[in-house]
Design a protein around this nucleic acid. Structure first.
Lengths: 337, 337
DNA sequence: GTTAGCACTTAGGCACGTCGAGTGCTAACA
DNA sequence: TGTTAGCACTCGACGTGCCTAAGTGCTAAC
């Protein structure tokens, strides 16, 4: 029994099953793929694959389907990432050009990716820590409530409402703004944390508490801010592949709505040397996604934000991986160095 | 055959069907509701109701279920909006207090509403046209690309990227900003359109084209801006009520993703005197929602934005309407006068 | 206008047999 | 040792026929 052929059999099973959604048997296998042996031999190979936990039979007289472990082996060792068709490349390029602001770019991107893959696509807001501060604005909403707005050179705009603990009055806030802006304009966001204490210290003691609150707010804005937000598209694709989620798509939708879950999942996914990482079925830390796979990759100036696709484990991995990789590349290019 | 009793029968059918999801027959009806007549009489009434198109029988020997028209009559004439339980009221109040910024409030609200009703909840961003301009910022992103940021006194922040057509340089942009800000600070957003031409006119002719572009951008920002955005929660509830969407929830998910569709639907819904408007099944202008109902109402300072709930036509209208109305009221109160 | 009674219709569940796909195993073969 | 042919066996899918329960419409009496 040859090892290489066994892998070839596994590949054939995965490909056929992904294509037909039906358990694939030994006879069909020898017919559709020109393996040079008889169905009986394939049966032996299949029995071995089953012993290794790579495939499984839904019931006695059915063909085999891949297990999570089988998909894993397929993705890691067997499959080659398929190149995109020229038409697809063109679609990517033309759809992502003529972009407006960041929101717009991400929105278009995620729609595109969901269309390319026929799955749910998600994209995390990019980190833009190299940006420097362009403008700071404090807007008094109520006696103690202040709206903080932070504008970075990259076009990132962040806002947040804050309780400063004391009533500074319109003038006090204006002075505070001038002070902060004067001290901080041009500061890189990544250095903000170091610069803030000095700014706070040079404020009159009576207002230092408020200044401290504002500084805290700015720090939060600059740092975590939108990076934990995400955009999503193509949830309707889940319903189409209804059959692939035996229980129901309910748990999956729940997971998608609990964005925290997805964000953790995305950031926990280690970076694969090939650029695209895959998390298959029960490998996912979240129960609702036990029958789903996530294909993701990093993108952006410093490759910290993630973009990816979520679908049933029965998924065309090579094509999906190619699409994710390609879209991530174009997106990185658009967002600039 | 008495009219009042016929309506009573319709109400009983709607209530039983909503409760049990099963077609309801004449016998079960007389047992569960103390109508003082026999099943044969009810049968006559039911036949009449069927003739009027208010109920229908899935097949010969099944009970009856309400039609869209039946639900409509039920909602308009029969049902009374149920008051919320004290526990629910408390939940609303406590969950909506301690709010951060607008995004946060809306996010919490929509989650709350979806939990209260076990349906999909949507909320449209409120119009804030009474706000005045607090700050304007132009950020040069690329030689001709400018990021516009508009901050209003209410805490609304809008941004947009624009191509100004000519290269103004850092200094040119800064001058332009000073000019715009000086002329427009304090202007109500609603008056912005009138003020802009003057501002553009007082710019040196060589830069007037750019100024015009910027003015156009500001106008767009102030006017349409976020008002056509919406937040949504509870899509997982759709999967739970899978059975209620015979075909599949696919079309519904598609409709939800095409936010344009929903926005139009919400704004097209006339304001009902009772405060809550209902659009039932095929009354919806969008095909994908032929088996769904929308319960919505206006909220906010000038009652222009909408909040609502979407679910299967087989929905507990009285309770849902009560929840939507209550949440809208609390939301309006929080957003202030 | 209401009621009782009855014939009629239909979905859904159950038992049954058949068919086909696919397997595992054994024995022969290279 | 690995490969192959053959065969008995298993099990789901499908079609058929049957029966029951639910519910209706209609008629005739009240």
């Amino acid at each position: 029994m040859s090892e290489p052929r066994k892998l070839e059999v596994l590949r054939a099973i995965v490909e056929d099953y992904v294509h037909s959604r039906e358990p694939v048997g030994s006879k069909a296998l020898v017919e559709r793929h020109h393996l040079g042996v008889s169905s009986a031999t394939i049966r032996n190979d299949m029995a071995a694959l089953e012993d290794e936990g790579l495939i499984t039979a839904p019931h006695t007289s059915a063909g085999r389907i891949p297990t999570d472990k089988g998909y894993r082996l397929f993705v890691d060792q067997i499959s080659a990432v398929k190149p995109l068709s020229p038409a697809e490349k063109k679609a990517i390029q033309s759809l992502l050009e003529g972009s407006d602001d960041l929101d717009d770019v991400l929105d278009r991107t995620v729609r595109l990716l969901s269309q390319l893959t026929n799955q749910v696509a998600v994209v995390q807001y990019p980190h833009l820590s190299r940006a420097t501060i362009r403008h700071i604005e404090f807007v008094l909403l109520a006696p103690r409530q202040v709206l903080l707005v932070l504008i970075a050179t990259t076009g990132k705009v962040e806002q947040r409402v804050l309780d400063v603990g004391q009533d500074l009055g319109e003038d006090g806030i204006a002075a505070m703004r001038t002070h902060f802006l004067g001290s901080l304009a041009g500061t890189p966001l990544s250095r903000l944390a170091q610069s803030l204490p000095g700014v706070v210290f040079s404020v009159a003691p009576g207002q230092r508490a408020a200044a401290q609150a504002l500084a805290q707010g700015l720090e939060t804005l600059a740092h975590s801010s939108r990076e934990d937000r995400m955009v999503m598209a193509g949830t309707a694709n889940l319903a189409r592949s209804n059959v692939d989620f035996p229980l129901s798509i309910g748990p999956v939708l729940e997971a998608l709505e609990e964005q925290v879950v997805l964000l953790r999942l995305l950031s926990d996914m280690a970076q694969d040397p090939r650029g695209v990482t895959v998390s298959i079925g029960r490998e996912n830390p979240y129960d609702g996604l036990a029958e789903a796979s996530v294909v993701a990759t990093a993108y952006g100036p410093d490759s910290t934000a993630k973009i990816g696709v979520l679908g049933p484990t029965r998924m065309d991995y090579p094509t999906t991986m190619a699409a994710v990789r390609a879209v991530a590349r174009y997106l990185s290019r658009i967002l600039g160095p």
